[in-house]
Design a protein around this nucleic acid. Sequence first.
DNA 1: CGACCGATCGTCT
DNA 2: GACGATCGGTCGA
Length: 200
Amino acid sequence: MQPLDPGFFMRTDVVNLARELLGKILFTHFDGVRTAGRIVETEAYAGINDRASHAFGGKRTLRTEIMYLPGAHAYVYLCYGMHHLFNIVTGPANLPHAVLIRALEPLEGIVTMQQRTGKSQWDLSITRGPGNLSRALGIQTRHSGMSLLGEQIGIADDGYQYQQGQMVIAPRIGVAYAGEDADLPYRFYIRNQPFVSGKK
DNA sequence: CGACCGATCGTCT
DNA sequence: GACGATCGGTCGA
């Protein structure tokens, strides 16, 4: 178990990067409590030329300014008024690329995850879907802009690697508003992995 | 199964 | 004032 090379987050090929994040570990360490899970589903958001990206057209607002930070920062925003969606900012400063983490296989702190999500029994939905996994790991919009190279939130590598044949490439979910870009093959997930979101 | 719907609120126009 | 990078429930076939 070791942190990723910081240079990994500075790469400009966000789509490849999203695929390579499959199998890595997302962890949080808040108030002495650690929770972690293996990333099994991601989506790439390719900056100013991607109609599905909050930074499309070079849009800069108080919220999206975080996307323009250099790589290895968290971009967290509130969706539908209730879900905190966690993204990894990638690339150099002022290249607003990001990878949305959509699902995890729980690894550590499962009891804490159940407490945070209010689930009394084992349930696949605990880290299935971007809103659910953020709740399980305690990630909120107040963490937007936080470094992923510190103690509290980060990406780790335990050497586990999925085979190419286990990875599925697909269009992103919930971006119909993006016109043609809604069909871009920017979603990556592990075949037959029960925590992967989406229908069936 | 699939389609639809309500919850809920920060952000931007 | 409108709108979501969602989720979980309901309803009908």
